[in-house]
Amino acid sequence: MKIVVCIKQVPDAKNVRIDPNTHTLVRQGVESIINPFDLFAVEAALRLKDRHGAHVTAITMGPPQAEEALRDVLSRGVDDAVLLSDRAFAGADTWATATALAAAVRKMGDVSLIFCGKQAIDGDTAQVGPELATILDIPYATFVKELNLDGPDHLKVVRRTDEGTEVWRLPLPALVTVLREVGDPRVPSLKHKMRAKKATLPVWGIQDVGLDQDRVGLSGSYTQVVKVFSPPRRADRVMLQGPVEDQVEQLYRYLKEAKVPGL
C-alpha cells in the first residue's frame, strides 16, 4: 500500500509576534519548524505502516530549504520524500497549493491513502486537504482522531466534530486530516537519521508534474491578500491587585458588568 503524507514547513510561531510597545511585527530569527499537525499525520501514517506494512512518502511544497523538513520526517521512519519546489509555486493560495499537490500525487501513481494535518499553524485554513481530495476525486474525512484499515480496501475513522464524534467508513483511495489524538510523533532513530542524511530527495518543478505556469502559484490562485496589519490591541485591560477578598469582589463585579453568561 502506498501512503503519501503532506507536510508543510512553517515559521515558528514564537518568531512572529507583535511588539507590545511599538505595536509592530517583530521577528526573532527565521527559524522554521514542521507544522505540528503534520507530525501527527506522519505518525498516523507510520502507525498504519507498523500494523499493516506500507510505503510512506512525504511531500512538501516550498522553497529549497523545506528539504530540512523532509529529512526530519525521513529520520522518523518515512520511506522517501519529494520536494515540490519551483519559483512558479510562490504565492499559492490553498487552491493553487492543492492543484500542485494533486499533480504530484497523480505522478506518483496508485496512492491508496493521503494524510494531512488538521491545518497549518501559519495560515490556519484547514482547506488544502479537502481541496486536494476533491481535485483527485477521492473521498475524505477531516478532524480524524482514530483510524484503521477495515478490510483490504476500506478505512474506518473516528472524527471529532463540534457535537461529539462520528464513525465513518471510506473506500480507498481516500484522504484524511488528523488531530493530535492519533498519537504523539515518534522521535528520530539513529538508523533512520543516517539514512535521512544520505538520502537524495527528488525536486519536482512545474514541468515535472505537468502543470502550466498560469495554474500554479499566485497566477493560479483565486484569492489575493490586499492588506496585512497588526490586530488592534486590547485597550480595556484591568489589573486586579491587593488583598484576595478585594480581588474576588472586583472580578465578580467585572464579570457581571461584562454580562458573562452563567452569572
Binding site: D93, T94, W95, A98, G123, D124, T125, A126, Q127, G129, P130, E131, A133, T134, I135, T142, F143, R160, T161, D162, S221, Y222, T223
Partner: peptide, 23 residues
Amino acid sequence: ATTMGRSFIPRVAALLQTGLTAD
C-alpha cells in the same frame, strides 16, 4: 467556520473552482 463548514466548504469551493477564505 464550524467543524462542518470547515470540512465541506473547501470541497464546494474546489468544485466551483473559486476562491475561499477560512475563518
